[in-house]
C-alpha cells in the first residue's frame, strides 16, 4: 500500500534570542490508509512539532525544512490559502486540551457545521443535520441539546468527543491525535480510546497518535516510532517494539514505566536528565544516559538503520559490549 502522508527529512528549528534551536532533525515517517502510527517521546522530543509542521501550525519563529507530502501535495511549500482547503478537509488534528482548543463563545453545533460550510459549501440546515449525526456517531448523549451548548457547559470527556467529531466532519484521510487523552481521567480516557478504535475500524483513515503513554500506544497503534532529542531512534511494529525493543532508550522507557500487570521491587530508571536542545551532546544524543555507551557513541552519530528483525534503530550497540 502507498502512504497517505509521507514526511521526508524534516527539520524544524526555532529562532530564539539565544540562537536557533533545532526541535526536529532529519525525521522521515509515513502512514498508510487504515493504519495507526504511534509516535512516542518525552516532553521536548519533537513529536508534536513534527506534525505541527505538517499542519502548517508552527509558531511564528519556527521554520521547517524537508518534504511533507499528503498524497503528492507538498504541505511545506503550500501557501496559506492552499493549506486552508486541505486542513480540516483532508487532514485534521485532535488536540490535547479540549477546553482551550474549542472556541469558547461559539455553540457546539456551529463549531461542527462550520467545517462543512467552509469546505463543502453546504447550507446551514444541512450543516446542522450532519453535525447532529456526527455527535451521535461519537456517542454524545442528548446530542440535539448539546448542539446549542457552549464548550464550558460540557465535561472534559464530552469536549474531547466534540473535538473528535469536528475532526471527523469531512472524513479526512489523515487524523493527527496529539495526546488526545492526556488531560482526561483514566475512566474517561478508556472511553475515548474505545471511540478512537471505533474510528480506526470504521473510517479507514490514517491515524497518527502522538503520546508519552506507552500503554495508550500498546492498545491502539499498529506501528510505533520513538523520538529522542528531535530524532527518531527506533521504529517498528507495535508487537516487535514492545516485545523486543532494539534501542536502549526504548528499552529504558519500557522498563521505567510501572505497569499493573507486573510487580517490581525498585523501578528501573534512565539515569540523568533529558537533554537540553540548545547544547546537545556530541555523537548520539542519548549517550550520556545510555547503559551501553562506548567510545564511538560519543563522537559519531548513529543513523536510523534497519535491523535483521525488520525494525529500525539509530544505535551502534548490537548486543555485544564495545559494539
Amino acid at each position: 500500500m502507498t502512504s497517505v502522508l509521507a514526511i521526508d527529512n524534516l527539520s524544524v528549528s526555532f529562532a530564539t534570542p539565544d540562537g536557533d534551536v533545532e526541535a526536529v532533525t532529519d525525521v522521515s515517517l509515513s502512514v498508510e490508509a487504515g493504519e495507526c502510527l504511534g509516535l512516542v517521546g518525552e516532553s521536548g522530543s519533537g513529536k508534536s512539532q513534527t506534525f505541527m509542521a505538517a499542519m502548517g501550525l508552527l509558531a511564528e519563529n519556527g521554520t521547517a525544512n524537508g518534504h511533507i507530502s499528503l498524497d503528492g501535495l507538498d504541505l511545506l511549500s503550500a501557501d496559506e490559502k492552499k493549506l486552508n482547503t486541505v486542513r480540516g478537509e483532508r487532514i485534521a488534528m485532535i488536540f490535547q486540551d479540549p477546553m482551550t482548543s474549542l472556541t469558547p463563545h461559539m455553540k457546539i453545533g456551529r463549531q461542527l457545521s462550520e467545517v462543512l460550510i467552509e469546505h463543502q459549501g453546504v447550507d446551514k440546515e444541512t450543516g446542522r443535520r450532519r453535525a447532529l449525526e456526527m455527535l451521535d456517531r461519537v456517542h454524545i448523549p442528548e446530542a440535539e441539546r448539546r448542539l446549542d451548548m457552549y464548550p464550558h457547559e460540557l465535561s472534559g470527556g464530552l469536549r474531547q468527543r466534540v473535538m473528535i467529531a469536528i475532526a471527523l466532519m469531512c472524513e479526512p484521510e489523515v487524523i493527527i491525535a496529539d495526546e488526545p487523552t492526556t488531560a482526561l481521567d483514566v475512566t474517561v480516557q478508556a472511553q475515548i480510546l474505545d471511540l478512537l478504535m471505533e474510528v480506526k475500524a470504521n473510517l479507514g483513515a490514517a491515524i497518527v497518535l502522538i503520546t508519552h503513554d506507552l500503554g495508550v500506544v500498546a492498545g491502539l497503534a499498529d506501528r510505533v516510532a520513538v523520538m529522542y532529542a528531535g530524532r527518531i531512534v527506533e521504529q517498528g511494529s507495535v508487537a516487535d517494539t514492545f516485545a523486543s525493543p532494539v534501542h536502549p532508550y526504548t528499552q529504558g522507557l519500557l522498563d521505567c514505566t510501572p505497569s499493573l500487570d507486573v510487580e517490581t521491587e525498585a523501578l528501573e530508571t534512565i539515569s540523568g536528565q533529558p537533554p537540553n536542545l540548545q547544547s546537545l551532546p556530541t555523537g548520539c544524543s542519548f549517550h550520556p544516559r545510555c547503559p551501553h555507551v562506548f567510545d564511538r557513541c560519543q563522537t559519531e552519530r548513529p543513523l536510523l538503520e534497519r535491523t535483521p528483525s525488520g525494525q529500525s534503530k539509530a544505535c551502534f550497540y548490537n548486543g555485544a559490549e564495545a559494539g
Partner: peptide, 21 residues
C-alpha cells in the same frame, strides 16, 4: 481502565467501561 504497556495484554484484557462522567 489503566492501559497496560504490552500490546497482547492490552488488546485482550477485559475492560469495564463506565458510562458518563
Amino acid at each position: 481502565a489503566v492501559p497496560i504497556p504490552d500490546p497482547m495484554k492490552e488488546r485482550n484484557k477485559d475492560r469495564i467501561l463506565l458510562t458518563g462522567d
